[in-house]
Design a protein around this nucleic acid. Structure first.
Lengths: 164, 164
DNA sequence: ATTGTTTTCGTACTAAAGAAGGATAAATCA
DNA sequence: TGATTTATCCTTCTTTAGTACGAAAACAAT
């Protein structure tokens, strides 16, 4: 997302910045220790304090180093997000029901056009057949679906997944 | 997802395990240092080596500590889970559309009975009104929904979430 | 070639739906 | 209170839907 390597040398410096910083810190600390050594040599009863200080300093250094140089631990949390899908948008024809009711292709076509709100004449025009033919299909459909009206046929057709 | 706190004390111990381990290590190291001190006091020209060893040990300790105690970064992965829902089973009426189209309660009732496949006479019987009344409602409905037939009204009603 | 299914088309009739007009009572709102 | 909305009911007429037959092609399978 928008990462631009403007300069490879700069990138190299970036990567080793922590190491360089560590080197400089180490050098400074050695000077500090030398100085501390000289001072504590004089009061060498305080050796425990000296060692304690060293322990604390280097522990901190270690922690800092580790945090800087270690790859971040990644804990992956999987969140399931429910995506609601409209059933009608991925309609699958109930073919077993078509077989069971012995519905022909033409009858299914007529049924779906019916469900779209077409009149018998409109269905006839769209299927290039006569009004009489559509009426015959209707009769057969109503008998097979065991209904009395086209509106009931639409209802039944949707319930049986014959139409979307 | 399925996280069970079986024992709070155990959980507490778990959380502070690293700290306790650190304490024990520190104690052991102090003993070691005391021993090393005694040995190096004899050969006290080797003080630099002694300090160097301490530095290395505590740096390592710091690194180990940091790695143990640092909190992992949480990476959230969203997994989309498809949930197929039956549109009719959780139907919510599109009330804004009802308001927009200025549909009355009665008209909606008529529309839903229409969608169930009722004839005008059946609708009249179920609503305890006359056939004429139902026809009037139908006319108003068709005009408001901008359709010409009852089947189209059903289609439009479903599309606009006016009926299940 | 025969059989059976699907699709097609027809007529005549009845039932239902829809259009267009007006009208009334009750409820609601300003 | 007056105005508006909602729901109710009516008649007349036209259109559409549905019923009940019959029957001719088209097509696939045997």
């Amino acid at each position: 997302m928008g990462v631009h390597n403007t300069n490879i040398k700069e990138s190299f410096f970036q990567k080793h910045k922590a190491t360089i910083a560590y080197s400089i810190c180490l050098a400074l600390l050695l000077f500090l220790l030398k100085w501390l050594e000289l001072r504590f040599i004089i009061f060498d009863h305080s050796l425990e304090i000296y060692i304690g200080a060293i322990a604390v300093i280097f522990t901190s250094l270690g922690i800092w180093l580790a945090l800087k140089l270690s790859k971040p631990k990644i804990k992956t949390v999987v969140v399931e997000k429910e995506v609601y899908i409209n059933k009608s948008e991925n309609f699958v024809l109930n073919e077993s029901m078509v077989t069971e009711l012995e519905l022909s292709k033409r009858e299914l076509e007529v049924l779906s056009l019916m469900a779209e709100g077409c009149s018998n004449q409109e269905i006839a025009d769209r299927l290039f057949v006569s009004l009489s033919t559509v009426k015959t299909h209707n009769q057969n459909l109503f008998e097979k679906l065991d209904v009395k009206r086209r509106t009931q046929a639409i209802e039944m057709g949707k319930r049986l997944s014959l139409i979307p």
